[in-house]
Deep mutational scan, measured.
Amino acid sequence: LVRYRTISKIPQITLNFVDLKGDPFLASPTSDREIIAPKIKERTHNVTEKVTQVLSLGADVLPEYKLQAPRIHRWTILHYSPFKAVWDWLILLLVIYTAVFTPYSAAFLLKETEEGPPATECGYACQPLAVVDLIVDIMFIVDILINFRTTYVNANEEVVSHPGRIAVHYFKGWFLIDMVAAIPFDLLIFGSGSEELIGLLKTARLLRLVRVARKLDRYSEYGAAVLFLLMCTFALIAHWLACIWYAIGNMEQPHMDSRIGWLHNLGDQIGKPYNSSGLGGPSIKDKYVTALYFTFSSLTSVGFGNVSPNTNSEKIFSICVMLIGSLMYASIFGNVSAIIQRLYSGTARYHTQMLRVREFIRFHQIPNPLRQRLEEYFQHAWSYTNGIDMNAVLKGFPECLQADICLHLNRSLLQHCKPFRGATKGCLRALAMKFKTTHAPPGDTLVHAGDLLTALYFISRGSIEILRGDVVVAILGKNDIFGEPLNLYARPGKSNGDVRALTYCDLHKIHR
C-alpha cells in the first residue's frame, strides 16, 4: 500500500512540481520508500527539464536528425535550378540546329562534286560548318556529364541527390541515346576521305529529338503553341524528305545512260545542264529549293507536275512521300480545326451564355430598361472574369491554397485601402477568403433606401454616388468604403439613402 501511494504521487509531482519531503505519510521509514524516492526525484528532475525545454521552444527539443539540413553532394545540380533551365534551352537550340543542318550536310555532301578544292585539302579548321559541328559534339558530351550530376524525382516524389543513384537512373534511361548522339564521328573518321560515311553517321544526332519531343509535351495545353509546333514538325519532315529526294537524284545521276532524272530535267529547265562528264548542272541553292518544293507539294497532295519522278527509285520514294503525307494530314492537320476551336472556345461560351440571357429575357418578357441593365451587367461581368467562376475553380483546392490565391487576387485593395494598413498577414488572409466580388454598370442602383444592410462594401474600381431623395450626399471612388460596420450592432440596419454607380464599378463586399 505504501508503495502504491508513493507511485500514485508521481503525476502530481510531474505537473505541480511538489516535493515529496513535505508529505508526512511518505516520510515513514520503510525500505521500499527509501529505494523508490531517489528514482522519483530523478524522474521528476528529468520531466521538469523536458517541460522547461518545451515551454522555452528551444531548438534542442527536436531530434538531432530533424535539425540537420538535407545534404547535397558537391557538384550536384538541382533539376529545378536556373542554371539547369538555361542549359536545357541551350541544348534545345543545338538539337534544332542539328535537326536542320545534319540531314542537309549528309545529303548535299554525298558524292558532291561542286567546283573547288576537296575538304581534305583545305583542312578541318577552315570549314565553318565542321567547326560548328565540333562545338555541338562537345556541348552534347558536356550535357552527358551534367546529367550524371543532376537530381531527379523518383516514384515516391522524392528528390534524389545521391550521385550513385543518379548515375544508375541515367544509365537506365537516356544515357545510350545521348551517348550515340554525342559521338564525334568527324574526329574519329577525319582524314579518311569518307565524307559520305561521316554525313550518314552524323544523322545519329537526330535521336535527341525524342527527348525534345517529350520536353515539349508540357506545352500541349496551349493551343497556339501546339499549332506552332505542328507546323514546325511538318516543315521539318518536309526538309528531311527534300534532303533524301536530292540524295536519290544525286546518286543516280552519274550512272544513268539517259538523262531522265529530276536533276537533269531541272538543269535543262533553268539552262544549267550537266555536261557529258557529269559536272556542271544547277547550283546547290536551286537543287535544295526545288527538292523542298517537290516534297511540300507531295505532302499537301497538290502535285503540280513541273517536278516529277521519272526513275524507279524516284517513283518509289514519291509513293512513300504520299503515304507520309496522308498520315500527316490525319495526325496534324486533322487537329488544326480542334485547336482553332479551342482557341476561340471563350468567344463561343460568351455567345452561348448571351443567347441564354436573351432567351430568358424573351421568355419572361423583361421590360426594355431592365433588359438593357441585365445585358450590360452580363457584358461587364464577362469582360472582368472571362466567364470563369472563381468560386467553382477554387473549390477543388485546399483552404490554405485558397487563402493564398484570394490574398493575391485582392492584393491591390488590401495594400491601398486604409482600414487594412497594419493588419497582420493572417488577418488579411482571413479577410480575403470572405470577400465576394460584384460588378455594376453605370446607372445601376446597388442599394435602395430602406434596404437591409448586411454587408460592408469596398470599391475596387469606378465611382458611385450616394443620394437622399434627389440630393447627392457624397461621391465615392476607388478604395472608399460604404455599408454597415460589421458586428457593431446586434441587428442589421437599414439604408438611409440610395447608392448608384456612376461608372463601371468593381466592388468587394463582406457579409455579416
Rank of each mutant, 00 (worst) to 15 (best):
P398E: 01
A167V: 05
Y124E: 01
W87A: 01
A155T: 14
W240K: 01
H79D: 01
G443Y: 01
G223T: 09
I332R: 03
G123S: 05
T102G: 03
K434E: 01
E252K: 03
A430Y: 07
C232L: 08
G271D: 01
T113C: 01
A106R: 01
A449W: 01
H79I: 01
H364M: 03
H416V: 06
A106T: 04
L188Q: 06
L266G: 01
W89I: 07
M179H: 03
A182R: 01
E195G: 14
E359H: 04
G271S: 01
K215E: 04
A225T: 05
S283V: 01
Y222V: 05
Y124A: 05
V142T: 05
L67C: 03
D88M: 01
H364G: 03
P442Y: 01
D268C: 04
L187Y: 10
R373S: 07
F296H: 01
V180Q: 01
L266K: 04
F140E: 01
P118L: 14
L394G: 01
W174E: 01
A155F: 09
S337E: 06
L206Y: 01
T437M: 09
Q379L: 06
W245K: 01
A99T: 01
R358H: 15
V321W: 01
A330G: 03
I361K: 01
I72L: 08
N265W: 01
L209D: 01
Y344M: 13
L187W: 09
G422Q: 13
G267N: 01
E359P: 03
F171I: 14
K272Y: 01
L327M: 04
W382E: 01
F397G: 03
L279C: 13
N265V: 15
N265E: 15
S276K: 15
F360E: 03
R208L: 04
E376P: 01
F185V: 05
L109C: 01
D217Q: 08
D286R: 01
M179T: 13
T203I: 11
L292F: 01
D217E: 09
E314G: 01
I198Y: 10
L201W: 01
F140T: 01
C427F: 04
A130D: 01
S412A: 09
L109I: 03
E112C: 04
R356K: 15
L200H: 01
T438G: 04
P441S: 08
R429D: 01
D404A: 03
P184W: 01
A99L: 01
S383K: 04
G191R: 13
S308I: 03
D444N: 10
P163R: 01
I339V: 07
V131S: 01
D217Y: 06
I248Q: 01
S276C: 04
F83R: 14
T113W: 11
D257G: 14
